[in-house]
Simulated scan of single mutants.
Amino acid sequence: MNDQVISRDHVGSLERGLAVLEILARHPSGMTLTEMAAEAGLTRAGARRFLLTLTALGYATRSGRLFALSPRLLTIARTWLQSASLWSHAEPFMREVAAAVNESCSAAVLSEQDVVYVARVPGRRILSVALNVGTRLPAWCTSMGRVLLSELPEAELRAFLRRADIIARTVKTITDREALAAEIVRVKEKGFAVVDEELEIGLRSIAVPIRNRSGAMVAAINVSTQPGRFSIDDMEREILPRLRNAARAIEDYFVVQ
């Protein structure tokens, strides 16, 4: 009965339009009509209708033959994030961590092969990686990503690692899939992750999970720093307890819901 209702109410054109948006998001430099048709599995006429509709509504822009996303989606995402009560509740605790260690504090969720930043309190120190709410980074080489991946059952984790586009971001990046699987298992055992210059040289981070009242992991929270500021031992001694305290305070949100 439920399947019949879902099938009857399913709007195929909306699904295809959202797929076009997602494809545009993966190609920030823009796409031609032909490229969109090929990647979305549409006819040229169908791709043209979707792209022109998105452009007319302000969700896409057109420059010559290229179509690209407009900033309007950022406005929608920002509105949602600002109204998301969990992250409104989390921000003061994240600010306490950032102020205590004089570094940035961020939160992210897992989305396909990436983590997506949903909250961030910037530190005073400038890193070359531009990180903001909505930023996507590879889950397999980030501390929050490894924390989130550690929640996956073994079969799902191995499936993720098989399909992930794993490349060396630095000379320290772990790219061997077996080694990555073993590292993520260690993260699960320890309850936190440290990633040392695998995403970018000069960038070191530590992350812990955030869980809901049933114990399921819903996000991760981290602190990013530089090797000259904190050794790994320093991070585990000085930053990890603060992160864990903040995570527990954020998790209290679920208790009172």
Rank of each mutant, 00 (worst) to 15 (best):
E39N: 00
C141N: 14
E238Y: 14
R237D: 08
A100F: 07
A38Y: 08
I126W: 10
G64T: 09
V118F: 03
G46K: 10
W87C: 01
A181E: 06
T225A: 12
M36N: 01
D234L: 09
L81M: 11
A130G: 04
D252P: 00
A130I: 03
S7I: 13
P28D: 02
P122R: 11
R177N: 04
D114A: 01
V121C: 06
L199P: 14
D233W: 07
V208N: 11
T135Y: 02
H89Q: 06
R120W: 07
D165H: 12
R8F: 08
V147W: 01
R62L: 11
A90R: 14
D176H: 05
E183K: 03
L180P: 12
M1Q: 08
D196M: 00
S214Q: 08
M1H: 07
L57S: 10
L42H: 02
M235K: 13
D114W: 07
R186Q: 15
W140P: 02
G191D: 09
G30R: 02
Y117K: 03
V185H: 13
F230C: 07
L137A: 01
K188H: 14
D233V: 14
A246P: 12
G64W: 08
A90S: 14
S111R: 12
S88R: 12
L57K: 10
A139F: 02
L157S: 10
E251V: 00
A181M: 01
G41P: 08
L243K: 12
V223H: 04
N132L: 04
T170A: 04
D196A: 04
C141P: 09
I6M: 08
G123Q: 06
T170C: 07
F93V: 00
S143H: 09
L148P: 14
E15M: 05
Q226V: 14
L157M: 07
D114R: 03
A119W: 05
L74M: 06
R62D: 08
A130L: 04
S128E: 11
E15Q: 13
A56S: 11
L66G: 04
T61D: 06
D114F: 05
